[in-house]
Design a protein around this nucleic acid. Structure first.
Lengths: 343, 343
DNA sequence: GTGAAAGCGCTAACAA
DNA sequence: TTGTTAGCGCTTTCAC
């Protein structure tokens, strides 16, 4: 032991965990070599790889991604911002995003912006502070300053669930206007004449329903009453909205709802009033949530492939982070009208 | 300019973003002083605070939390592990957890373990690699090695949604056994004699339903048939399960479901067969999801305050991270039976 | 109240 | 293929 006299100045700092240095020492190589053995095994000799692998498993070493991220300016962290995770709409997207990222060694950090933009600033600060390799935005960012900050931070941004005319950066979505038009045409073609809307109070649903109303007008149908309910939408507000709607517009024979949950509420209210669906009233939902097919009657609805949105967003961000240039930066994921019994 | 001769070796590394050094220089103080102005403003003079604040807003500086975390060995990151986020059960918990953490300057990183434990190892590695200040586990961690690794990493762990007899560390939950007993008593007291169960295939629901069946037996009721459906539970599987159940046990007059979604499926199937609920069949759900109160008939169910679980978990972890010792490390959040029309 | 020095644990850049 | 050096951007420790 060469501990002769001089005090062993073991620093009190640090986590005390096994570091790459420990592993390297045990394997008899330089730290950088151990690092390479872990991140690009093909670049080291078989012998080194073996020794390092063994040292890792003997020590239980787990790489400190924070330190790695600091050194490489790549955090392998992706932030997802949703209004709230509690609405079932974006769940599939968040789920598939998490999975697709995890498969490639990235993690998801979750941020909830709420439906008001008060917390948005603090949220952005928290996100930018982590230097994520990308941000996935669901729903449009409210404030122009927010958009500016994001751009200024140089973080790749994927906006989803909409096809905005002026994307910040990358975009995965579909046309809400087209949805509105197509559903109006669908109902019109099936002989419905008194169309109505029950909708959550958010930007995207407004796009759909303005287009819906406009298409109805263009087809020569009477004006479309629109009942707005606060976001997030609930079964309860669907029931209440139908009650109000029928009181004011008894002739209504078709309702387009901005979510399947709302549609379920409308159907339950109709049923409890003895109104036949679809005989007397057609109901169309939005989202094709898992329960839609199994309702009685089964729900006709607009299907969005939320999981595909998540996967595509993950791919965009990973490609960008790894320096591969992405060709097309806007993807229209499309939608389809799933025709079932309720309309 | 003292740029005489010697080349200005500007490194090509780094993100190019504004750093604390830039802010400090602009404010005319040392970096450490700028750091203090930002993290503990009370420790610097008013003058310094003013200058630093101004420099921050002029440069648009956002602190690099990765670097801070590396230096302080506190990442201000908390990992949440759920089987899948797509089931509505844990949503409230994840939502309130995210919010409660954000309020205290912590962020949530989301991990999905799936209902099989194949991905669990990779997930744990990814989590530990980020050196989170805490982990919130929902549902028991499957493998003993996983438990060992977590403990070895020295990361505070909060287990939720259950009251395991041998907690890893901290615990926020309720007794599933007690739920089963109480619901059995509830149905028995209302004159039901032929109890049955429709349940998702997970550990916690098994606890509830074994206790439910046992309580029924103890009360002298006939054996309780249990229909298991794969997790995650769906409306569809609820419908199918009731159909099977009635075929095999036509006398059944009460069904306890392991989720509200399952209960909704059971109710819809009953309705489509002309079986009166609650007259001929009582239905009890689990979770008190937001739609439960507005079904027709409204759903009697077991209410768990998922948001309270999230808040308490956040508090546990933050207190631990900030060195404050937590007194009681196990909290029983309780539950209640919400009596509505379906039973 | 303020600052200088020394890392946190890792990887980019350059060299051999 | 492997190693040396010099940071990444921040905060701890210790001194004034």
């Amino acid at each position: 032991m060469s501990n002769d006299g001089a005090p062993v100045r073991r620093s009190r700092r640090g986590s005390g965990a096994v570091t790459l240095h420990d592993v390297a020492k045990l394997a008899g190589v330089a730290p950088i070599t151990a690092s390479r053995a872990l991140s690009s095994p093909t670049q080291v000799s078989a012998e080194v790889l073996r020794k390092v692998t063994e040292a890792v498993s003997r020590t239980g070493y787990v790489r400190n991604v924070l330190a790695g991220g600091l050194a490489s300016t790549r955090s392998r962290l992706v932030a997802a911002v949703v209004p709230t995770i509690a609405g079932p709409v974006f769940l599939q997207t968040v789920q598939s995003l998490t999975e697709a990222l995890a498969e490639r060694g990235y993690q998801l950090m979750l941020g909830q912006s709420g439906y008001v933009n008060s917390r948005e600033d603090a949220l952005l600060e928290a996100i930018i502070g982590r230097r994520p390799d990308g941000i996935v935005l669901t729903g449009i960012l409210h404030s122009p300053e927010g958009r500016k900050r994001l751009l200024a931070a140089g973080i790749p941004v994927v906006e989803t669930w909409d096809l905005t005319p002026t994307p910040l950066d990358m975009l995965v979505g579909f046309s809400h206007v087209e949805v509105g038009r197509r559903v109006a045409g669908f109902l019109h073609a099936r002989g419905r004449r008194h169309l109505a809307v029950v909708a959550g109070d958010d930007e995207r649903s407004r796009l759909r329903h303005d287009a819906f109303a406009e298409a109805a007008r263009a087809a020569g149908l009477p004006p479309v009453p629109i009942k707005r309910v606060p976001a997030p939408t609930t079964l309860k507000s669907g029931r209440a909205a139908l009650a109000e709607l029928l009181a004011e517009h008894p002739a209504v024979d078709a309702v387009f709802c901005s979510s399947d949950l709302l549609a379920l509420g409308v159907m339950i209210e109709a049923q409890s009033r003895g109104i036949d669906v679809p005989g007397r009233l057609a109901v169309v939902g939005f989202g094709d949530l898992e329960f839609a097919a199994d309702l009685q009657p089964s729900l006709t609805t607009v299907r969005i492939d939320g999981a595909a949105i998540g996967r595509q967003a993950a791919q965009f961000i990973v490609e960008r982070a790894e320096g591969r240039q992405v060709g097309e930066r806007v993807v229209d994921i499309g939608f389809s009208i799933v025709e079932r019994d309720s309309a």
